[in-house]
Nucleic acid binder design. Sequence first.
DNA 1: GATACTGGTTACCTCAAAGATACTGGGATA
DNA 2: TATCCCAGTATCTTTGAGGTAACCAGTATC
Lengths: 137, 137
Amino acid sequence: MVEPLDPQMFDPVCPSSAMPIRIGDKWTAMVVLCLEGGRRRFNELRGPLRGITPKVLTQTLRAMERDGLVTRTAYDENPPRVEYELTALGRSLLTLIAAARAWSREHLPALFEARDAHDSSPGPSALRIAETGEVIR
Amino acid sequence: MVEPLDPQMFDPVCPSSAMPIRIGDKWTAMVVLCLEGGRRRFNELRGPLRGITPKVLTQTLRAMERDGLVTRTAYDENPPRVEYELTALGRSLLTLIAAARAWSREHLPALFEARDAHDSSPGPSALRIAETGEVIR
DNA sequence: GATACTGGTTACCTCAAAGATACTGGGATA
DNA sequence: TATCCCAGTATCTTTGAGGTAACCAGTATC
């Protein structure tokens, strides 16, 4: 069997939403990474994907199954058991995900730096904010 | 000066929305590609990005400027002139975009094939349920 | 005057994704 | 009899991306 998934494998502090690369839906890339080491069960995936609701995980997996990225195998047991596994097509995304992560490691700090510099610049943006009365928390 | 942009450079029939990779917002990757050959003016970008509204192009360019992907240069002329240009950080996305396009060229047909097969499959779940104890590939 | 040009801004609307919360079935277990 | 477990469903609400249309300032043209 495969090793259990590390519940800490995705750092919630890491603002992946700020990463300008997305594979599929919000959770698709993380599901692919979870399945990299072998087949996994539904509730096994819910550990590392902290905060995902069963509904959204179901939606994500169904969409991935439809696109041929994962296979779903349901065993007629009790309690029920369902396993998900990457297809060759799903595995082909791993290199792309690795490229995106490499880009992030190399360039994301510069992006945040630019963002911070922009947000704290005394330029016309401050004026525009003052004019609109927009509140920034 | 640079050559004019080809208004056909993005095929509207190409379902890029189906491509499971996204760089930044919906238009970010296309803007990067438009700026690959040199600086461009606002309305120059609106040609290839068929269907983009000025509001969304403004939002996209502002966000990219904030993230240090493009520079915005406004000339105090009449009529006004504004030019956008890729930064080194923005250019660093080109390799990632190339990787995503390579993946799509290679694997997107298989994805669509899987999707079509799934959508026109006869039985919903009966075939996908494994027999008890049976080893599934 | 009236209109057009450029590079936008603003208000308003729509729609789908995401999330919160609760509930299901049916055998196994206490 | 009651409860637990897994793999989901069902329903509602929120969020936010994206789109439509109107408007702006300053100059130049008709």
